[in-house]
Design a protein around this nucleic acid. Structure first.
Lengths: 188, 188
DNA sequence: GACAAAGTTTACCGATCTGTACACTTATGG
DNA sequence: CCATAAGTGTACAGATCGGTAAACTTTGTC
């Protein structure tokens, strides 16, 4: 089993769940779309929910890797990187396969705050917040935590609004707003 | 049929869909929780989706009524009302039965942009945006449309972040950010 | 008090849901 | 070459899905 079948399953399931939703995707559809037998799926994961958790782990890893790398490619000073967050956001939102934030959709479908799927989604958002907060700290903002939280509000708002309206312009407006907030949060 | 059974159905179904989600709520659960027979439901609505649309219409009407009225109660100048948007938002988010925005959850479960449920949810958001835009115009902002869109980003961000983290503080941070943006968008 | 509209109960349809059992095939490593 | 692990196909269980049929009861109106 060199090119691990389990990883292949999680990768393919990610696409289907992302495209069609969690409750709307049955195991039989996953069999048809991933090409992996149901027996094999239930050998790797005891339940559908466990599989969803694995999918979310992969998504978190991929997205954070891509996002942080992209931000650091686009700009090289902490302050410029705070703005680059919104350039990367715009790239993501306008990419052809964008279908919203998988974690926002996950908490929409699994609302119980004690549900592991809900918890894991919240953790993803917290880690992204921490990243932006380190940028804000390095940029010597007056209150880095507050600035980071405000910028994240703009980011989440741009994501859901883009899905709602079906176009990527909210990311641009978010960047404009971010510019003002960063300016105002400047030290000295 | 004075206290219309249809309206009672929609009111009760609203609570269940809001609490448990759309796909996760079956018609049998609705029978059990609303106390209305399935035959009766299907006499008023041809499909489950049609019922969801009626539920969303009620939600839109109720929410916009409450929200705009509340904003206008809290403040009486256009400019103060732009900020009062976030006070009303905070009241909503910290209210005991808050479980996120029903329309964001609806588009999360019905992702197809041509789905009537998706379209109707987007319409709700557009109407709220229009309301804020009229406030921004009355407040003589330099670019009322742009300011309104930015404030709405903060609002949507505060909603989803509150659901994610399970507390209402994002509404307060959104208000702080809004203060800065409104100040910066001032004419003269 | 008759009549019609509205609502209920119960049972059911075929499809789909998550998850399992079992017998079979493939691939890998010593 | 053989033992073992990994994967497959098929069939199925039991529950639930959205939606329907038919006979019965309640309700409001003239």
């Amino acid at each position: 089993m060199r090119p691990n079948k389990r990883d292949e399953l999680v990768r393919n399931a990610l696409e289907v769940f992302y495209r069609d939703g969690f409750h709307a995707t049955g195991m039989d559809k996953l069999v048809a779309e991933t090409g992996i037998s149901k027996t094999s799926m239930y050998k790797h994961f005891r339940t559908k929910d466990e599989m969803i958790l694995a999918v979310l782990r992969l998504r978190d890893e991929r997205f954070r890797n891509w996002f942080c790398r992209r931000v650091e490619e686009i700009a090289d000073t902490p302050r410029a990187r705070l703005l680059a967050v919104f350039d990367a956001l715009h790239e993501w939102i306008t990419s052809p396969r964008f279908k919203g934030c998988m974690f926002i959709k996950a908490v929409s479908e699994f609302q119980d705050p004690k549900d592991p799927i809900h918890i894991q989604s919240a953790t993803h958002k917290r880690m992204l917040l921490e990243y932006v907060q380190t940028l804000a700290t390095e940029a010597r903002a007056r209150d880095p935590a507050a600035l980071a939280r405000q910028l994240m509000l703009l980011k989440e708002g741009a994501i859901v609004t883009s899905v709602m309206l079906g176009n990527g312009s909210p990311a641009i407006e978010a960047k404009a707003a971010a510019t003002v907030l960063i300016e105002a949060a400047d030290c000295c």
